[in-house]
Simulated assay, not measured.
Amino acid sequence: MADLTSRRWARFAVPAVLVLAVVVAVLLLGGTDDPEAGPGSPSPTITATDPPTQASPEEFCTAFRAFAEAQSTYVATRDEPSTTALLEAGDELLGLGPPLGLSDGGLTSLRELIDSAMSETGANVESPTGAPADPDAFNAYLATTCPA
């Protein structure tokens, strides 16, 4: 009877030990999606240098002022350097992410303003989607966050 019990135990224990060994091997070797990474290479992680998901008021105001200055220069000169400066300033402002504290309607208004200025240069821009534009909310945000 002991022989029959040990066979039953072995029938279940051997596959369980093999599965456990495979899991441990996978965990120890790790891996990434990077084909050049070797075994045990750490997976990429988010660091403090990754861009924020929302722009701080200071970042936004600095970038918005640079954009406004580039737009003013472009309207006055309409030359290639001012066109490049306007497009770069618009891309930088959009790249910051939504400003902290700006409503969805205000954000749509900001995007419409940037896209309108950039489209004047002949750039192919996408129309903003999302909440309906709320120019009053955007103007109020500018007045309180980025006073002149």
Rank of each mutant, 00 (worst) to 15 (best):
E112W: 02
S6P: 00
G122Q: 03
P15E: 00
G38Y: 06
E58F: 04
M1I: 10
C146A: 02
F60N: 03
L27W: 14
L96D: 00
A63F: 09
D136C: 13
V24D: 07
D115I: 04
A117M: 00
E112S: 06
F60T: 03
L102N: 03
E58L: 06
A16Y: 03
E69K: 11
T49S: 15
L27G: 14
G90V: 00
F64N: 09
L87W: 04
T49W: 13
L93Q: 03
T53W: 07
T45D: 03
P42K: 14
L94F: 10
V23A: 13
A85Q: 07
D91R: 14
A21F: 08
S6Q: 11
A133D: 02
G97M: 07
L93V: 00
G101F: 00
G106Q: 02
R7S: 01
R7Y: 12
G97V: 10
G30L: 12
C146T: 02
T121M: 01
A37E: 07
P147A: 11
E112P: 01
G30N: 14
L28G: 14
P51G: 05
A76R: 14
A25S: 07
P98D: 13
S43A: 15
L18Y: 02
F138Y: 11
D3Q: 13
G40K: 04
F12P: 04
L96I: 00
P99A: 05
P128R: 05
V24Y: 10
G40A: 09
L113R: 10
L18K: 05
E120R: 07
G90P: 01
S56W: 08
A16N: 02
A123L: 07
V24I: 12
G130I: 06
